[in-house]
């Protein structure tokens, strides 16, 4: 394929995007919603994914949720709102940023912008055990979101879609900002759990965002909660004991590391009580 002498190239197939990425290297960047690259990377060649069919598709059935990389926060929120197991995702997609940005920023942009440390969708999808499907020049691969976030994929790739298994679990997403809106979150906790008929939570999956450079699961805390009857107070105590061992708080202009760690136990407790509330409601 001949490389068009243009600074914004709209491709219609994923393979074209990969081809261009390989050839142009550092001088090019993928553009999804544009809300990051328009602020950070204006001198590079934009490879726009907007004209690729199917990438905005979202399918939701009893078994699985599949979200295309180009689905916006708003699209995702509209699709999953009301699904009890996906509440964390609905909150992450529906409450982050601002209404106009939610109509523009995409799932792919949120998960693939490695310089962005406060992504909301990342911890929500970690708590929901999501898998990502990538397209690379050597073909399609599917891996857990956790692996994708932990180990940078350095080869040119396009995140194609994300798959979330449907369950009878409950989930919640708690984000802390200094103002009531308009900030990137300083710390995020997403949590999903199985709820036994007696109302107790089990098999917790806890993900923490914005505290470090990348969202990640809080396995140590999950282990402490394993097979225990967890209340929001008991989990808070565990979280308080573990937070500074398990995380190194990120110092940045919007907030200091100590503060991000200090609030984590309360956010975890909040997530647990949110889940318990929805469980009672359901």
């Amino acid at each position: 394929m001949e490389i068009p002498q243009q600074s914004l190239i709209s491709v219609t197939r994923v393979s074209q995007a990969l081809d261009l990425l390989t050839r142009l290297g550092e001088t090019a960047t993928v553009m999804a919603g544009g809300t990051w690259v328009m602020r950070e990377a204006r001198e590079r060649t934009f490879i726009s994914l907007a004209e690729i069919p199917d990438l905005t598709d979202i399918t939701l059935d009893d078994q699985v949720l599949v979200v295309g990389a180009m689905a916006t926060h708003q699209d995702i929120c509209n699709a999953v709102i009301g699904a009890p197991d996906l509440a964390a995702l609905a909150t992450a997609a529906g409450k982050s940023a601002t209404p106009a940005i939610r109509r523009m920023a995409t799932l792919g942009g949120n998960l693939c912008t490695r310089d962005f440390h406060s992504a909301d969708l990342a911890p929500a999808l970690l708590a929901l055990n999501a898998k990502v499907t990538l397209e690379t020049s050597s073909g399609r691969e599917t891996l857990s979101l956790e692996d994708y976030l932990n180990t940078p994929v350095d080869r040119p790739h396009i995140l194609h879609h994300v798959t979330v298994p449907r369950t009878s679990r409950r989930s919640a997403h708690v984000r802390l900002m200094q103002r009531q809106a308009g900030d990137y979150p300083l710390a995020v906790v997403s949590l999903s759990a199985a709820i036994h008929p007696d109302g107790t939570l089990h098999d917790l999956r806890i993900a923490v965002g914005s505290v470090e450079e990348r969202a990640r699961r809080w396995h140590a805390l999950e282990a402490l909660c394993d097979d225990q009857k967890m209340t929001s107070d008991s989990i808070r105590a565990h979280a308080a004991a573990r937070a500074s061992q398990d995380f190194v708080g990120r110092d940045a202009v919007d907030g200091q590391g100590w503060y991000r760690l200090r609030v984590l136990p309360a956010l975890v407790a909040q997530a647990v009580s949110d889940i318990s509330l929805t469980a009672q409601g359901a």
Binding site: Q6, S10, M38, R39, A97, R103, M104
Partner: peptide
């Protein structure tokens, strides 16, 4: 110029979006 204030909002196909982050090429 970075999506936060909304003073540049226009409607694209009837939907409000921040024009400071919309490349014309799209």
């Amino acid at each position: 110029g970075e999506g936060f204030c909304g003073a540049c909002i226009v409607q694209i196909d009837g939907v409000p979006k921040v024009s400071c982050l919309l490349p014309v090429g799209r």
